[in-house]
């Protein structure tokens, strides 16, 4: 997707080659090639496919996060929403629903509604996004324990099972889902008025509002999208795991934010692209896999993970000095 543009013009090719998404992609390639020399099984097609499949979950959660961050906010409730989705779906299995589609749609509607409530708090009550979404996460965490207790719930939903395990044309269904979502998201973000409004809002909310951007409804939509994609990720992770339990979504909060930032989107808003988040998500999964290969104690694994993210941020996440 990048090298074929050489004939169009040197300037454009150079712009793509020096862009942040491409840099992240290059880091992924280097890490993959390097790791496959060190560890024999790492570079196998099956293993890489598995990595991308795991990356799909992070990528989906990070979809909404990218929207929210570009719009100048942050969503710290995505992990709780993933868990809500993975736990409420098995509880919503209906007799007259043989394909399982209806309950999946119901769960996605529920998580979208949670996202919209976040948006309502941010846009109408003017609560800071970080407080609103953290409080929402606390609230959901309590609610989940009341609903599900400490036990795991098993999903018997055919559609969810298919999503987590099927391989049409040799590619896991989760990856196909991610590709489809990515195509839609990239189009919406960069080729529609809605996408332009999000960037405008994140760069300068006041100017955007004065220029006629409907800030309130756009904020609602952005947080709604985040709720929807986190719900979708919850469905996928439920399909891959077979069971949902409290805490299943916890790893995806840091992962989603890290994927967004590693992909070159500014945490301050107004600047970025989902095209960077995609390799960002794969990079995160790769790091996690490498750390597992090292076979260290949980403490060292945690330290290694944090340090690697910090190191990668130094390569790609620096803000401009403003003075």
């Amino acid at each position: 997707m990048t090298a074929s543009n050489d004939s169009v013009g040197g300037g454009r090719a150079r712009a793509i080659l020096s862009s942040r998404p491409f840099m992240t992609l290059a880091i992924v390639a280097v890490v993959w090639i390097g790791a496959s020399f060190v560890s024999r099984g790492f570079g196998a097609y099956g293993h890489l496919r598995y990595l991308v499949e795991l990356g799909a979950v992070i990528g989906l959660v990070a979809t909404g996060q990218t929207f929210v961050v570009i719009a100048g906010g942050i969503d710290l409730s995505v992990a709780a929403i993933v868990t809500v989705s993975a736990i409420s779906l098995p509880l919503l299995s209906w007799q007259m629903d043989p394909t399982g589609l209806a309950s999946v749609l119901a769960v996605l509607a529920l998580t979208t509604a949670i996202g919209v409530v976040n948006g309502l708090g941010v846009a109408l009550l003017r609560v800071h996004p970080m407080i609103m979404t953290l409080a929402m996460a606390t609230f959901l965490q309590g609610l989940l324990i009341i609903i599900a207790g400490g036990s795991a719930v098993t999903a018997e939903n055919p559609l969810v099972h298919w999503l987590g395990n099927a391989r049409p044309i040799g590619i896991p269904a989760g990856i196909l889902l991610w590709v489809a979502v990515s195509a839609i998201v990239l189009t919406v973000m960069h080729a529609t008025p809605f996408g332009a409004r999000i960037f405008a809002m994140g760069a300068n909310p006041l100017a955007a509002s004065l220029s006629g951007v409907p800030v309130k409804s756009t904020t609602l939509a952005v947080y709604g999208i985040s709720g929807f994609t986190a719900g979708l990720a919850g469905v996928l992770v439920l399909g891959m795991n077979g069971q949902g339990y409290v805490g299943i979504g916890d790893p995806y909060l840091l992962a989603s934010i890290a994927a967004v930032v590693l992909g070159g989107t500014s945490i301050l808003g107004g600047l970025g692209t989902y095209a960077g988040t995609i390799p960002g998500a794969v990079l995160l999964v790769t790091i996690t896999a490498l750390i597992t290969v090292v076979n260290a104690s949980p403490g060292w694994r945690s330290i290694l993970f944090g340090s690697l993210i910090l190191g990668l941020l130094l390569l790609s996440g620096r803000e401009q000095a403003r003075r």
Partner: peptide, 21 residues
């Protein structure tokens, strides 16, 4: 010049890992 949210989020893993060690 790294964003504080992300640094401290990554830092929480490093510090939490150190506590586990």
């Amino acid at each position: 010049r790294l964003p504080a949210i992300v640094v401290t989020l990554a830092g929480s893993f490093i510090i939490g890992g150190a506590a586990l060690l």
